[in-house]
Every structure is written in structure tokens, then in C-alpha cells.
Design a protein around this nucleic acid. Structure first.
Lengths: 252, 252
DNA sequence: CATTTTTCATTTGTCAGACATTTAAAAGTC
DNA sequence: GACTTTTAAATGTCTGACAAATGAAAAATG
């Protein structure tokens, strides 16, 4: 006898949320279309209004619908925009990393490999405005009194401009998660003046290559930056481990 | 006077959900930690239990928590796993594409640029098992009686194996969205025998390059496949437009 | 008639209390 | 000790109600 191994008994609000979600994905419900009112949905699914509401809240949390109060209010199918999708992407990526499923090297490798996929296009398509942003961030990074957090934030802004230079929102969307999610890990690094000088140097190489529409030079500079980031993280980890040995010895 | 433009009045369940979410992201609540019961949360936030429940359902929809009934039950912080994150990623990517925010060329470009970021690593690290999977899918794709859907599914499986060859879960996670989300668009293409032969040929080139650990050859073959995909989609669009002209003439 | 104001019905947001169901631990039984 | 029963705690669901928002219709006003 075939067992239905996935559905011992699923919560009603989950079932309802999935039914509506499928209707949206399959196109039965189109963008900006109004769903039936909660009372109508209660009748339709044969459940109480709180249950329907929990289902709708699940969908709202995924940005699939928005709700509006008032006479002509209700729940409407949401057009998912990149801005909102960014947020979800960043949250998920951040948690995936912070929950120890991924070590720094792996995340860093993924981030730079993805970014290298962009620079080829960025070298071809970058606008003067995006280039100016990159230059401005480099200039900021070279200033002496900058805090580590501000340095990292500028680093993110630099790479954001670099990625946006590819002029492909799908790439920007994907990279947003990869670049920003790694920022907290980067923030644990204490950058020495020498580290910063090297990073600024590499950033300048990238900007120069982008300015000259030189894809391969940009790719090479980014590869160097990737290697240097891993190296830095490696040093940090070693320093931490030696500190650990000092505080908790006899771990052979 | 400075207006608080973002917070005219946010719903209580949203506020509570965000408070808990921040606690999770900031590490105040760690993985598998139990949240207070719904009754306790009601007291703590000064709201009713249904409101707390709606907040918890929002978090559950984002896979941030799971709930369990019974004496030792409650809401627990979820360890986000790649498998679950895949699902969200694919859903979001699919909707972003299907809601017309993105045209096929853009999505296709992003997908193949990202995939090219993987093949370098795949060429270095692929296991014999992954290579065998790729060969098997190629063999399936070459069979004559295959439906378009099955051909596309095999295409996805092939690229999935290719991506997994990079042995980097973060890359696999990112690519899963890009590759699978585009499948519905690919399914609209009716593949002729000649199309398939060309795709199989390119897949074989990729597999050969991966087998020989030849990164640049793999990259080149994938670039060719990208160009061919865009070409195919272009033909499909033209055919559709000419069909449109036939049914609605006088469009110059 | 045109315009402004008021009223009003609709819909979501929130609350209170209750019962059903599930689950594991505690108590009881052999 | 091993097994069964009871019990308490927690989520899941229901009912009914009121509050708040909001647009539209109705009424008042010029």
C-alpha cells in the first residue's frame, strides 16, 4: 500500500495558503487582482476567519499579497519587485551563513565567482555614473580615520556599483544576497592600514579596468581581490584559534 | 517638520514578527531555542493570542520558525537549510520572471553568466558521479521520442549536476533559482530535432571539457550554449509576433 | 447644478473566551 | 521493571464581537 508520507495532517492555514499561492503562480490570480474577502474565503474553504487570516499572513510574509483596509479594501496579489526581493534574499543568505551551515571560504568563493560573472558585462556596459560611484567609494576607503564598519559599508557600496554596472537586474538581485550577506562576516575582520591599502589598490585596478572596458583585466583584479580576502580571513581565523588556545589550553 | 514617512501605523502582528525576526538575526535567539508560548508572548507584547499567532505564521512562512504541538511543543527557531531555501529562491525567482518584470534575454543572460562562474570550479572539482549524471542526461536528451517537457527537465538536471560539480552549496543555492526559474520560459520553446541535436552537441562539449578538467573549453562551450539559447528564444518571439500579425494584420 | 460635508456600509485589524487535538511526562497498574 | 492510563501544556481552530480605516453614496450647502 502506498503511504502518503508527506501529508499526515497539514494545518488548515498551510493548506489554504498553498492553494492561493498555487493560484497566483499558475496565473489564475493575476497581479493587482483582489482576492475574495476573508469572510468569503472562510465560507469557500469551510474554515473560520482567523484560520483564513493566518493563511493570508503567511502569503503576506512572502510578499505574495498585500492587504488594505476599508470599504474597497481586501487582499491583492502583489507584483513582486526586485527591491522587496532583495530584502528576502539578503535575510535568507545572512541566516544561511550565520547559522554555521557555511564557512567563510565557501561563502567568499561563491560571492567572488558570482561577482566575476558580472564584471565582464560591467566592463562593457558601465555608465559614467556607476564608475564615478566606484571612484568615490575608493576615495572614501583611502581616508585614514575610517572605522571598520564604515570601511565595510563602503566596500559593499563599491561592489554594489560594480555589479549594477552589468545592467541586469537579475544579476543584481542575485548578487545583492551574496555581497551583503557576507558583510557581517567581513565586519569581524579588523583591517590594518596595510590591509586597506592593498584593498584600495585592488579596487583601483578594478575601476581602471572597468573604465577602459577591459574585461580580462577587471576579472584578474577581482580574482586577486578574492584571493586576498580569503587570505585575510584565514589570518583572522588563525589569530582567533591561537587566542582560543591561550584562554583554554591543553586542547592538544 | 520631519515626517515619519515609513510608519504611519504598522500592524501589530507585523511589529511583533519583526521584533522576533530581529532577535533571531541578531543571535539573541539561537537555533532550536524555544520561543515563549503564545500565551506568554501575548502578555509580553500586550496583544491577544490571535495577533501573536499571525505574527508567528509570518515567521513560519519564511522558515524562520517551526511549530510543534503538544506538551513540550511551541515555536522553535529553525535552522535554515539549503533545501528549504532553494524552494523560496525558486518561487521568488519564478514570480519575478513571470510577472513580466524581466524579459527572457535578461534572465537568460543572468543565468548563463552565473553558470559560467561555476564551470571553472566544476572543471576542477567535479566527481565521477556528477559527470556520469551529465552523460546520462545527455543520452536521454538524444532520444527521439522525448517530449518537450521531459527534454527541459533533463536539461535542468544536466545543469544542476554541472553546477553541483563546483562543490559549493552557496553557488548551488544561487543557481538553483536562476536555472529552475527559467524552465517555464524554456518550456514555451518547441524544440525541433535540429535544435535538440545542437544542444546535445554543446552539452557533450561541456561534459568533455569537464571530464578533461579543461576550464576554458567548458566556459567557451557554455558561452556558445548561452548564445544559442538566446537565438532560439529570439526565433520563438519572432514566430509569435508574425503569428500575431497574421491574426491582427495592418501592423505595417 | 456643482461642491462640500456627512453618513454609511464594507473590510481588515484586534480582542476575548472557549473547545479540540496533539504530545510528552507523570502517575498508576500488573 | 514494563506497560497502560491519566494529566497537563501547548498549538490549532471556532465563535462572536468590536475597533479602525476607507471609499462611495447620500445629504447638505452655496
Amino acid at each position: 500500500m502506498a503511504m502518503k508520507d508527506k501529508k499526515p495532517k497539514r494545518d488548515l492555514s498551510v493548506q489554504i495558503a498553498e492553494a492561493i499561492k498555487d493560484a497566483i503562480i499558475s496565473g489564475q490570480l493575476i497581479v493587482d487582482e483582489r482576492l475574495p474577502s476573508e469572510a468569503e474565503l472562510s465560507l469557500k474553504f469551510g474554515v473560520s476567519r482567523p484560520t483564513v487570516r493566518e493563511a493570508l499572513k503567511r502569503l503576506a510574509a512572502q510578499n505574495l499579497i498585500r492587504t488594505q483596509r476599508g470599504a474597497t479594501g481586501g487582499a491583492f496579489v502583489n507584483r513582486i519587485r526586485f527591491e522587496e526581493a532583495y530584502g528576502q534574499q539578503i535575510t535568507t543568505s545572512t541566516l544561511l551563513l550565520s547559522m554555521n551551515e557555511v564557512d567563510f571560504e565557501t561563502a567568499c568563493e561563491a560571492r567572488f565567482m558570482l561577482e566575476r560573472a558580472c564584471v565582464t558585462l560591467s566592463a562593457q556596459r558601465r555608465t559614467d555614473d556607476q564608475l564615478a560611484t566606484m571612484r568615490a567609494e575608493i576615495h572614501r576607503q583611502a581616508q585614514p580615520g575610517l572605522s571598520d564598519e564604515a570601511f565595510c559599508a563602503s566596500d559593499v557600496a563599491f561592489h554594489r556599483a560594480l555589479v549594477d554596472g552589468a545592467d541586469n537586474p537579475v544579476l543584481s538581485y542575485q548578487l545583492a544576497g551574496a555581497v551583503e550577506a557576507i558583510e557581517p562576516l567581513m565586519n569581524m575582520v579588523t583591517f590594518t592600514a596595510r590591509n586597506r591599502a592593498r584593498i584600495v589598490e585592488l579596487h583601483t585596478q578594478i575601476a581602471n579596468a572597468i573604465e577602459n572596458h577591459d574585461s580580462s583585466a577587471a576579472d584578474q583584479a577581482l580574482a586577486d581581490l578574492a584571493a586576498y580576502s580569503v587570505e585575510l580571513a584565514h589570518d583572522v581565523r588563525e589569530a582567533r584559534q591561537s587566542r582560543k588556545k591561550t584562554t583554554a589550553p591543553a586542547a592538544s
